[in-house]
Amino acid sequence: MPVVNLDHTLTLAMSVRDRHRSADWYVDKLGFTLLHHIDEAGWSELATKTEGVTLGLGEQTEPQPGNTVPVFGVADIEADRKKLEAAGVKFDGPTDTVEGMVSTATFYDPDGNALMLAQDLSGK
């Protein structure tokens, strides 16, 4: 039995220099659909051609190639984080919250690969 119950969504988060330019590239080249730009959070999100999978673009001054982080949707991030921590999973700092948008928490697999939990707070 899994420690947490993930929902049926997956966001692949990548760091980019210019979210707007990158979003245009994914729309033009791969046919993705822009869902939104959230400028105050430095975040853009696109629907991929795979149901339940989105691409998130986080803006950074110097993004590193190969920096994709799978972001798993959950209904209760605090409860699921506590369960994972109790199971020995290491997290990177506290849970981050953008009120009315999302709460996220980065954690690591046994090889140090970054993964993330996200709880949608938008009421959608």
Rank of each mutant, 00 (worst) to 15 (best):
L12F: 01
F107T: 00
A87G: 09
P110V: 09
T48Y: 01
L57M: 06
K90S: 14
V53M: 10
E99V: 10
G58Q: 13
D92L: 09
G123T: 01
K49F: 08
K29R: 13
R21W: 04
D80W: 01
A75W: 01
A105F: 01
M1T: 13
A105P: 04
T48E: 02
A13G: 08
L84A: 03
D28E: 15
I38C: 03
D92F: 07
M14C: 14
G93N: 04
D109E: 10
V3T: 12
A79F: 07
D120I: 00
V53T: 12
Y108G: 08
G56H: 06
V71Q: 05
R19N: 12
V74N: 03
L121D: 00
Y108V: 04
L10F: 00
D80Y: 00
L55A: 06
V71R: 13
V69D: 07
V3L: 13
L12W: 00
D109M: 07
A47L: 12
T9I: 03
T54F: 02
A75K: 15
V102T: 01
R81L: 11
V89I: 11
A86M: 07
W43L: 15
M101T: 05
V16T: 13
L35V: 05
H37D: 08
H36P: 00
L84Y: 04
G100Q: 08
Y108C: 06
L35I: 10
N67V: 11
V16M: 10
L57T: 03
T68C: 14
Q119S: 02
R17Y: 02
Y26E: 11
Q64G: 07
Q60G: 04
K83Y: 03
F91R: 04
E59Y: 07
G42Q: 14
K29C: 14
E62N: 14
D24I: 06
K49S: 14
A23C: 06
I38R: 13
L115V: 04
G73N: 01
H8G: 14
L12V: 13
P2H: 13
A105G: 10
G100N: 07
V16I: 12
E78A: 13
K90Q: 15
A87D: 14
F91S: 03
T48G: 02
P70C: 02
R17Q: 10
G123V: 07
G112M: 09
G123R: 00
V74S: 07
M116W: 01
Q60S: 12
R21Y: 05
E62W: 08
T95Q: 02
D28P: 06
A105D: 07
D80V: 03
A114I: 05
L55G: 06
V98H: 08
H36F: 13
E45W: 02
T104I: 13
G66T: 04
L34E: 10
L46F: 05
L121Y: 03
D80I: 00
A75C: 12
S44W: 02
Y108I: 07
L6I: 07
F91Q: 02
A114P: 05
E85T: 13
M116L: 04
K124T: 13
G58A: 08
M116K: 08
P2A: 15
L84H: 01
F107M: 04
N113T: 09
K49D: 10
V27A: 02
S122G: 12
T11Q: 15
A23S: 14
